[in-house]
């Protein structure tokens, strides 16, 4: 059943490629703006890179949250999901996973290229990609709760940022921290395993909380 949802969402994303591309280009533009704002001093850029890339990833992933449930809400598919005999948490897991495949994975793939703009060493580029690979699914899963709670509300897009961004902070700290640790020549295993732990915890709790939120929002 999860596979059905993922297949459908990927099919829809394929038929509306522009949505995927806007998120990706938003990410690229935000990251590219920083050198213009703070100057091209390479040492400083190298220091800022992990934080800049990660903050841009948070914003890009959050911007795409609005789409996660809203189109299904508008055309009535969400009603049918709530009335489906299969578990809603499972469906929600599928939705969050396809959100990640459509918005998270492109960011992960693009990050090394952007890291080169900031003159990051090769090891740091690898750590950056790895940290995003572990961290972006957490963003999709936690963000799903916010998206479900703000469903159909006026000003939902801004509201979701208020709800979700504070919850993203741990991922930001350890994601950017892993890259910093690697450039500083320290171990980054602990950071990555903590990101992995966050991923596991959000995999267990978030679909359940999102399902409850959807039922509340649709009642």
């Amino acid at each position: 059943m999860i596979l059905w949802i993922i297949k459908r969402d990927l099919l829809l994303a394929m038929r509306r490629r522009s949505d995927v591309l806007t998120t990706l280009f938003f990410f690229i533009i935000v990251v590219s703006l920083f050198p213009l704002g703070v100057g091209p001093e390479m040492n400083m850029l190298r220091m800022m890179a992990p934080g800049v890339v990660w903050v841009a990833a948070l914003l890009a992933s959050m911007l795409a949250l609005g789409r996660m449930f809203s189109s299904d809400y508008v055309d009535g598919t969400l009603e049918q999901m709530l009335l489906s005999p299969v578990s809603l948490s499972g469906l929600v897991m599928g939705k969050a996973l396809s959100h990640w495949l459509v918005t998270g994975v492109p960011l992960v793939l693009m990050a090394p290229v952007l890291g080169i703009q900031y003159d990051l060493p090769v090891e740091a580029l690898m750590v950056l990609t790895l940290s995003l690979l572990l961290g972006t699914p957490v963003l999709s899963l936690v963000g799903a709760i916010g998206a479900a709670l703000t469903l159909g509300l006026r000003g939902g897009g801004v509201l979701v940022s208020l709800l979700v961004l504070p919850l993203y902070i741990p991922v930001l700290i350890f994601g950017a921290g892993a890259v910093e640790a690697s450039t500083a020549g320290m171990g980054f295993d602990a950071h990555l395993s903590l990101l992995g732990a966050f991923l596991l915890v959000s995999l267990v709790f978030s679909p359940w909380a999102t399902a409850a939120s959807l039922r509340i929002s649709m009642a």
Binding site: L12, R15, S71, D75, G76, T77, L83, P85
Partner: peptide, 17 residues
Amino acid sequence: RSVMTYLGHLGGIKDDL
């Protein structure tokens, strides 16, 4: 839910499919 079918105003039809 497995013995019941509900069809609302909104058909749940996706434009792009």
